[in-house]
Design a protein around this nucleic acid. Structure first.
Lengths: 208, 208
DNA sequence: GTAAAATTGTTGCAAATGCAACAGTTTTTT
DNA sequence: AAAAAACTGTTGCATTTGCAACAATTTTAC
């Protein structure tokens, strides 16, 4: 039995979805999830599986903007339309439900389920905002060393321990911190040499 | 007569605020706006005036995280509590109203005003998210030249014109892009020399 | 309207960073 | 089980960037 998704907390999911004109679609791995159906204000919910929100630069280069897992939501509402083209691409077979935000607001007047959904929606959006604020805090430090240390400190603070397992590959971490991978590896070596950290296969320990 | 703030759109502000235990406080310029009153989930609304959300690093250095103007909202909900200390400091005499998010959700079941407020709240939060996404897009480009061009392109796309007036001082722009100011000035000169841009006191024009 | 503070514009220099390239390892695919 | 792909680890080198410092200009405060 699957755990209840955060977006459906405190509400009767079946009843709620039946009152809206929601639609649920299954996608195969690597398929593009077409969610920008002309009209804005549609919210996609990853019910099962995972997907990536990716951006294609003018020169065709691909960047992962956000990794989406079961329970995550995505929407055009969160991205400026002036930016480069964004696509959501399944990274595994997945099940996605779409609901209309406008309809949701209408229904919230009469449906306690819709109101709870709205509450959960705010919680998920503020979570995204928190994550973005964290990332900006990392990106605005000026040196690779500081970026790494800030990232490591953030992780250790989150789990309240001096050690943690890297959730990214080094390649992806370099991407997340927007730095050159080889330069990052070099700095990582310096941090070890200078006794700031320990790194035993993917487990980072802060030594200060 | 003041224009209606976005957060109060489609609702009777007076009636709405009277149903909640909201409180409105006046602050003098440079005063600290204490909003983190132990309990989380309080939303502050800048009714009049302006303020800065600032962070103090471990070494005491001050960074402006967000500039708040009339109509903007702020809340602990949007920031990870593991981060450094955040303060809201008035940058002019201002009037701030605080409402409890939890109370708001409760009231939304019965009050159409509260529901509209919730709708507006989502709109303002997603706006913040859009802005953060934009900033991250700029911060993840690798060179000063690309940061500047990306910023300039974003501005021109927004107003659909090749020219625009800088909304920041150069000092602040360097801060926003997280680059050294003097290095930015140097690169700006190169961009002019190479015919990419024109800069006639604060008015930037893209020449491509 | 004058003084003080902030911003702009510039430069030399040292340090940090990105780039390119490649070998070794691990993971994924077929 | 073999082949392909992705990731890790490393280095030399050129370039970019940050830092420090200062004069000139503009803005703000009293």
């Amino acid at each position: 039995m699957l755990e209840k998704l955060r977006i459906y907390e405190n509400l009767d999911e079946k009843k709620f979805l039946s009152t809206l004109q929601s639609n649920t679609i299954f996608y195969k791995n690597n398929q593009t999830i077409a969610y920008s159906l002309g009209d804005r204000n549609v919210i996609g919910i990853i019910e099962e599986g995972s997907a990536n929100l990716v951006r294609f630069d003018y020169n065709g280069e691909r960047t992962i903007v956000e990794e989406l897992y079961s329970g995550d939501i995505f929407s055009d509402m969160f991205y400026s339309s002036t930016n480069s083209e964004l696509l959501v691409i399944a990274t595994s077979d997945c099940k996605v439900t779409f609901v209309s935000y406008d309809e949701l607001i209408n229904k919230a007047q009469t449906s306690i389920n819709a109101l709870s959904f709205l509450d959960n929606l705010i919680s998920l959006i503020t979570d995204k905002l928190v994550k973005r604020n964290e990332r900006i805090e990392l990106l605005t430090t000026r040196t690779i060393r500081n970026k790494l240390l800030a990232y490591f400190e953030l992780q250790t603070k989150k789990i309240n321990s001096k050690s943690f397992d890297l959730e990214y590959t080094y390649t992806d971490l370099a991407d997340y911190l927007a730095i050159d991978r080889s330069a990052m590896m070099r700095e990582l070596k310096h941090l070890k040499e200078d006794g700031f950290i320990n790194d035993i296969n993917r487990k980072i320990t802060l030594l200060y």
